[in-house]
Nucleic acid binder design. Structure first.
Lengths: 240, 240
DNA sequence: CAGTGGTCTAGACCACTTT
DNA sequence: AAGTGGTCTAGACCACTGG
């Protein structure tokens, strides 16, 4: 929490209203001047809030028309599982716990560089397997520095959405990420968990998530079975 | 082309300077106030240019410090080759022609859905292999609908940058893309071209590029050797 | 034509980093 | 203390969409 900025407050309000269908898909938001007047903010500040909604895919702006509600997509538009035609909805997605969160030291040869702060804090580690319609597609190894996350191991239930939990419990939001991707080969553990044979090709993805807390990063190492489902994403839409 | 805005001009200048090593990796750009003074622009306008550089991954801003040059990643911030530590510069990147551009019909089982317009136009097809320091890393199969691209097969030289060519010759710019990613296995052709053994894992990427021409899309099918170099990208960084 | 978003200016105060 | 980027204001003119 702490002191949120004006544009963040407006951004959150509008996002909430879009998700709550106050503004329906395809309709226009109040104009920048109207928002400026009603929220008692300068137009620049309103534009900053709208800009964030735009880059996250909630709205599209059109000169002369207005800000049009485009989708209720989640924030990060980066490489998620999709079927070839339709997106995989929550109905079809299951999560299985392989290892419950435990506090330990960081792996010796951790791929990403860690700050001294992170090194000293130790890490929380857990493993999940994600499935789509009973088909295991992703083996997910997550590492989190134990920085000011009281009672994490007690509170977090692996079955729930990790990002949602962080938001609701600690006000932590993911604002970006770096990722590295390789084609790799399933070892015995990965093969077992993903229903593959040892030596089958798997997608290996290392991710570093950036959060709204300045020095807090989250790390994931993913192994994906892409036999049936590809990883996919879109980019584009321009800028401020 | 046409009348560029002030912040676009500044953005392009800074990007060019970063790519030309005027500002080295890890160094700081001139401060917003300095740029504002030297370019004779308001600080807001300077911030808009820097903001675009940031969302595209060229710089990172740090309160109290400055704008730090982060990488020379290509414009479209989506999945490009990077070494583990340093970005791969143009000095280290070679292109080999495998098949020169030729006009033909579309493949029978083309992965992406094609419009009637595209179907009727036929396609230009060429194959390149990209290498980093003599190490082949990407087998690139490109398909372009033959829509109002006069003399393409005569004008385009495979050794030159494809996107740059489209921009300079036809004023076509890539503004976004969709991509699908799988872990796959090298067949005899791919293995030969990438210096792998048949059965080695490769990254398979199908891309559909969106351009500034409303109905013009470009298609690529990539096969990547990720033994030494990973594919990587960043997302996030906020806005104006 | 009035209304919209796109660009731009010239200020201001703040929190943060470095010296 | 000086300098940096982050936020915010109150204006202005423009190009574009709609009636």
């Amino acid at each position: 929490m702490s002191s949120a900025t004006q544009y963040q407050i407006l951004y959150n309000r509008l996002k909430k209203e879009i998700l709550a269908d106050v503004y329906e898909l395809g309709s226009v938001l109040p104009s920048e001047n109207e928002l400026s007047a009603s929220a008692n903010l300068s137009r620049s500040t309103v534009r900053q809030a709208l800009s964030q909604l735009e880059t996250e895919g909630y709205i599209v702006k059109q000169k002369g028309k207005g800000s049009i509600v485009k989708s209720k997509s989640r924030a990060l538009n980066l490489l998620s599982f999709q079927g070839f035609s339709a997106t995989v909805g929550n109905d079809h997605l299951q999560t299985t716990a392989i290892q419950e969160p435990e506090l330990s030291t960081w792996p010796a040869d951790f791929f990403f560089e860690l700050s001294e702060l992170e090194q000293g804090a130790g890490c929380i580690h857990f493993i999940r397997v994600r499935s789509i319609d009973e088909q295991a597609v992703m083996y997910e190894n997550t590492y989190i520095p134990h920085l000011n996350l009281p009672k994490f191991t007690r509170l977090f239930k692996l079955k729930t959405s990790f990002f949602e939990f962080l938001g609701k419990t600690y006000d932590i939001e993911v604002v970006g990420m770096d990722q590295h991707i390789w084609a790799s080969i399933a070892d015995i553990e990965i093969a077992n968990q993903l229903g593959l044979k040892v030596g089958d090709p798997v997608l290996k993805i290392y991710r570093k998530y950036h959060t709204n807390r300045p020095h807090l990063f989250l790390y994931s190492m993913l192994f994906c079975n892409t036999e049936k489902y590809a990883m996919s994403n879109s980019s584009g839409g321009v800028n401020a």
